[in-house]
Design a protein around this nucleic acid. Sequence first.
DNA 1: TCAGCCTTTTGACCTGAATCAAAGTAGGGA
DNA 2: TCCCTACTTTGATTCAGGTCAAAAGGCTGA
Lengths: 254, 254
Amino acid sequence: MAQKNVISLDKIKVACRDCSLSTLCLPMGLRPDDVDRLDAIVKRNRPLQRGDHLFRAGEAFRNLYVVKTGAVKTFTQTNEGDEQVVGFHLPGEVLGLDAIQDGQHGCSARALETTAICELPFDRLEDLSSNIPSLQHQMFRLLSKEISHEAEMMALLGRSTAEERVASFLISLSERFKRRGFSATDFFLSMSRQEIGSYLDLALETVSRLFTRFQDEGILKVERKHVQILDLERLNGMVVHPTNVERHHANPST
Amino acid sequence: MAQKNVISLDKIKVACRDCSLSTLCLPMGLRPDDVDRLDAIVKRNRPLQRGDHLFRAGEAFRNLYVVKTGAVKTFTQTNEGDEQVVGFHLPGEVLGLDAIQDGQHGCSARALETTAICELPFDRLEDLSSNIPSLQHQMFRLLSKEISHEAEMMALLGRSTAEERVASFLISLSERFKRRGFSATDFFLSMSRQEIGSYLDLALETVSRLFTRFQDEGILKVERKHVQILDLERLNGMVVHPTNVERHHANPST
DNA sequence: TCAGCCTTTTGACCTGAATCAAAGTAGGGA
DNA sequence: TCCCTACTTTGATTCAGGTCAAAAGGCTGA
């Protein structure tokens, strides 16, 4: 039992150079010795349990965080007191980028399941970026990618029906799982209908109804958290594809 | 006449160190000699006329652009062929940040009125950032601010009524004009109801109706493009204020 | 094993904003 | 000057999705 814990901690504390996420994460495109310099500033704590906070809105910003295993949601509080989900974050995704700006976190983050995190002290990351041009470049790309991603999300929320939003959400998860080596068509949702609805700006009932409908139409098989995509074609067909098609054969990351 | 052109071009080509936007723009917080090094890479072309493109979606990314005077909209095309406004950009605001990621512009930008632009070749900006830590820091903040801004916009689009959106839009313009030394309560809209609606994800009729209603309620005086805010208090009261109030007395920029 | 709680599903109804339609209104060009 | 076009306003109608309500599973812990 103790033995088992030790092994699992060791696995979690794997160095960047040996980490399976290195093609998704910050080290992407760095030279091996630069990866080691980056690795030297990474701090790896014990895993978070479901419900644990990674950080809270208003807290001072010190670190960026990368999800290593598990899943995290970020959220803010509306003034009616209920929470508004801002994003779901899978392994290799970086959290805290919005906080660089004013030195404090604008949203809270908590684990949706048992989750391992790599912590990067931002001041040290800045120093390192000054000395490693390719890391600076990678940082710029990372930030820019976040901007693009949010712009896409705005476009989605903006001009689309409930059907499109739920379809997009499933497609996005599917693609992200696939890139991480999991099944693109058979996975478990680590978040509730409530949280999905909050994220997509839909009532939880609407999410539920669409899952049911997609199932009735033979597109999905849904049983609670377990989702199987039976007809990815049709799901893709529901989504408004960006017209500037050129972007598609450009960048195959995150 | 020729004389006048020369003078106006001279005015447009003012160096960063003499530019009134220096507290809003990239040079913010740089040492004077570093501002000059930044200035050396800035290119200033002739002003754009209303309707001129600054860049188009799909074009290769080479430069960041800063609005110097005037106003620019960014937009994408939906697959139904109509344009979707992504943002309105006032003096001191930087365009193109989303394109760093994959080397091409994800949206198009065109002038809403006669507009002067400063152009920053991104490769040279990266080099300079490597050599000037405070510039690198400024760049990170700039990118992070864009992320925060989009997150706020998502929150707005997400969870709010047409009334809240239009109120927010007016408040945002008001604050941005104020920071730039213009009146916070009396200004001209450089965009159409159509464009406002597209930006806020509302039908143009809805925007028009709300302008009318706000006027009937004594909150605004609207005559076509000319807007006067009569009761900013009440306008503010319509908007969902973020609960994490701490953020407010944090960072007084853009 | 059962009780209690929480999540999810399903149904009925209602409403805010979209859509459709048409009438003003301003500005630019011949 | 007047016309033409584009923008804006206003009204009538429709409908997607929210809200309210209640039932049905699952899961946890005693």
